[in-house]
């Protein structure tokens, strides 16, 4: 900012200075300061199902899936340095495994969803393993290809219901379980990953992003760590997929739809890359928005793109980074 002879001074609030990572709280005011944002997020998300009508409750469920994917994308891109455009692949693999276990072996969702999450994550990680040595744009391209790849294999071999898909899978007993299951999953993954990136392993991930050669030179096998990071992301993504196939009681090629790769990126950009909570909020804003714009027909995509371009051009830091800064710092004019 360039001004005359005054400049705006920005200072961290004293509590922020003292408590970055270590909570030394000395008054109720500070306690509220720390807890309030987390409280608003959790309570806000959990009260949403109570105030929404039937239609929007469904939208909330799919927003939750996008939130999980956006969270995974942000984690991989900003904390491990892998730009993964394969969100649709995770959803597809998780959804197919869970759906097939239910359709062929009659496993209940209670069992098939966890099994599909873990098995799907293992399979996705193994398939992505040869590409983990790739960096930057190359990994993005390869991971973007896999969902397309899977669609053509399923169609060509005519397996798993081929183009028709398989319908009449077991669904959840009622709408409340549907909603709270995904909301709890979102909150758990959000706070889990938040915790993970500040642990030792998170420091290594960050190092791999910043300078992988230096990490290698420190005697750390970066491929092993990247594998772990991809597994975590795939786990979250596959859970989303498994949940989705039981949400609609149907599995089909649209589980591999491009939407699942692209929407999370849009949500992450809007919410603020690198803040973890930003992409989640972005998903909870963008998904309902795209539903609300459904009335505009094809114009909806245009409006939607305009919002995105606006954010990229005018506010590339995203919503959450901006809000966090405003929350943690105060500003004053200072004469120089």
């Amino acid at each position: 900012m360039l001004t005359g002879d005054r400049r705006k001074k920005r200072l961290d609030r004293s509590i922020k200075v003292r408590t970055e990572g270590l909570y030394a709280v000395s008054s109720w005011g500070e306690m509220v300061y720390l807890i309030a944002p987390r409280f608003v997020l959790i309570v806000g998300l959990f009260t949403l199902p109570l105030v929404l009508d039937m239609y929007w409750q469904r939208v909330l469920c799919s927003a939750g899936i996008y939130a999980l994917l956006a969270l995974g994308f942000d984690f991989l891109a900003e904390f491990v340095g892998l730009v993964c455009l394969g969100g649709a692949f995770f959803v597809g693999v998780g959804g197919y495994i869970s759906g097939l276990l239910n359709a062929y072996y009659g496993w209940p969702p209670l069992l098939s969803i966890p099994v599909a999450s873990v098995a799907g994550a293992v399979i996705s990680t193994l398939i992505l393993l040869p590409c983990l040595r790739l960096r930057g744009i190359y990994f993005a391209i390869v991971s973007f290809m896999f969902p397309l790849f899977a669609v053509y294999i399923i169609v060509a071999l005519g397996v798993f219901g081929s183009t028709e898909g398989i319908s009449a899978l077991a669904t959840f007993p009622n709408i409340w379980i549907e909603q709270y299951l995904i909301l709890v999953a979102v909150i758990l993954s959000l706070f889990g990953i938040r915790r993970l990136v500040s642990e030792d392993i998170g420091v290594i991930f960050q190092g791999i992003k910043d300078n992988d050669q230096a990490v290698k030179a420190s005697g750390i096998n970066i491929t092993a760590y990247r594998t772990k990071a991809v597994f975590i992301t795939a786990l979250i993504g596959c859970f989303g997929g498994a949940y989705l196939s039981h949400l609609y009681g149907w599995l089909g090629l649209s589980l591999f739809a491009m939407d699942f790769s692209i929407m999370p990126i849009a949500a992450a950009v809007m919410g603020g890359m690198g803040s973890l909570v930003g992409p989640v909020l972005g998903a909870f804003i963008l998904t309902p928005l795209s539903e609300a714009l459904r009335g505009f027909g094809q114009l909806r995509v245009v409006l939607y793109s305009l919002i995105l371009i606006g954010f990229i051009v005018y506010k590339p830091e995203g919503l959450m980074n901006y809000l966090q800064r405003k929350y943690h710092q105060f500003e004053l004019w200072e004469k120089v």
Binding site: M1, T3, G4, P316, N321
Partner: peptide
């Protein structure tokens, strides 16, 4: 540098 930092919400550069 100032513009880049401003866009990404980083540190503010002031020139007087």
């Amino acid at each position: 540098i100032e513009k880049k930092e401003r866009m990404r919400g980083g540190e503010r550069v002031t020139v007087l």
